[in-house]
Write a protein that binds this DNA or RNA. Structure first.
Lengths: 257, 257
DNA sequence: AACCCCTGTATACCTGATTACATAACGCAA
DNA sequence: TTGCGTTATGTAATCAGGTATACAGGGGTT
């Protein structure tokens, strides 16, 4: 039993971006004309032209620029807006297919009676969700230690249950997301000894209320970490642009994928 | 710009459960005959019959039981298997539409250029994901305190950033999911004073390795919590069936929806 | 001016899906 | 035996989308 799903955008109740139209736009980008693109998809020129026209008129801004006549008889090219639209659709599509794959894993196997659905696909309050690659997995009875490498090449260690490692099929090389609450990220005083998970970065934003201070830290690789720490003698001296060292306990880092 | 998506199950490459067929099955459950159900959907009797027949033969076990002749001319009723199938489909559908709604919130507003997609829809390593209702939200500068009521009517307090409250649109009455790592759930000694978040329950499973002990605790309302604690004088005396008190620090509870 | 290759339209056709309609077969009740 | 309302089945009509085809228009190039 497989699972199928389609994703499409509509504009005013009318279909706007279907999977086939996306293929057509990509073909236009490559071939530079509607007629060649139509052959490549494949579909008839008429329906291709109608699809392009419909998209262009529905869109607030033209998606393609069309020209008639000339040496080559004219042609059709994507506008910058059109290219951007394609890129964004690809992102949506990727998220969607990831979700469908996840959902499908629930129905496979079981005949008619799907395994219990465990609230998959949560949107989390956690501020820190960082892409990482698993470099090592070490099972230690009930728990497991998972070593992660961030885009900035910095290392992180996460302790989760062995059960979770199995559930998420975490293996060396897996692309995962390290998740942790900002209140579990603490600032390490320069004199202090280094704990297990040490991340170095530069403060890009600083917010303060009567009890806490919120740091936004750029740790390289286009990743930022948010840390909320209680006011202290040290933390109040921090300023935007300062270099800081952040610590996170391995048991406070959970893993998502 | 709206977002549309369909969800369908296929059996051997052939469509098996489409949205329309689900509606048909529901109508059959209500009316007790294909012909009446077809009128209710609405669709022609022939296509309804063919759909039912296709589903029945594709399925490993009949979905409906059909009878011809008799006082009332016969009729069609769902089998227990069929009813189960409907229920499971509803679950899948619910997850799917939740996801689509979330995805849609990203494209709305922005014309063509969707906001950055922040890895929505994570599957988490956290063992504890419990349905809850928000009873109170209290903003305190950078942080916010969110009070939750579980299905078992027990209370939980969560501290997250005010930013997260806004992002997830958490308000009194919101249905959310409390998420926490099992290593952040600790067992409270009977003599100890009660901390903020206290949950009472009964141990249903117990697993032990050389360093840790994993408790699965039924806290009522069909919810279970998993706790992994270091071996200690107290924890080693615990047995399946024992009543225990569990504690979770508010800062260790994150919220998802 | 002739040529080329595309865009822009119109029209007829094909095909698959759905519906409408017609007709058995069925089996219990009156 | 007849009547009833349903399942079961076939056939023709209709509809929607896409395809095939044809052709006018455009504007640099030669």
């Amino acid at each position: 039993m497989e699972l199928a799903s389609t994703l499409s955008l509509e504009m005013f109740g009318k279909p706007f971006l279907l999977e086939k139209r996306i293929r057509l736009l990509h073909a236009i980008e490559v071939h530079g004309s509607i007629s060649k693109a139509a052959k490549a998809v494949p579909m008839s020129y008429k329906s291709a032209w109608e699809a392009v026209d419909a998209m262009n008129t529905l869109s607030p801004e033209p998606i393609v620029h069309r020209e008639t006549g000339g040496r080559e008889g004219g042609g059709t090219v994507l506008t910058a807006y059109g290219k951007r639209l394609l890129k964004h659709y690809a992102l949506l599509e990727e998220e969607h297919s990831r979700f469908i794959a996840r959902l499908a894993s629930l129905v496979e196997g079981e005949e008619g009676t799907f395994g219990t659905i465990g609230r998959l696909g949560l949107q989390l309050s956690a501020r820190n969700q960082i892409q990482a690659v698993v470099t090592q997995v070490q099972q230690e009875g009930i728990n497991a230690a998972v070593a992660l490498r961030l885009k900035s090449t910095q290392q992180l260690l996460s302790h989760i249950t062995a059960e979770a490692v199995e559930d998420l099929q975490i293996e060396t090389g897996s692309s995962v997301v390290a998740v942790c609450k900002s209140s579990n990220v603490f600032v390490i005083h320069p004199d202090e000894a280094e704990p297990v998970n040490l991340l170095e970065g530069v403060i890009t934003m600083l917010e303060e209320d009567t009890k806490h201070i919120k740091l936004t830290v750029d740790i390289g690789g286009h990743d930022t970490i948010v840390s909320v720490v209680p006011l202290s003698i040290y933390s109040t001296t921090l300023q935007t642009g300062d270099k800081v060292r952040l610590g996170i306990k391995p048991r406070d880092i959970m893993i998502g994928r």
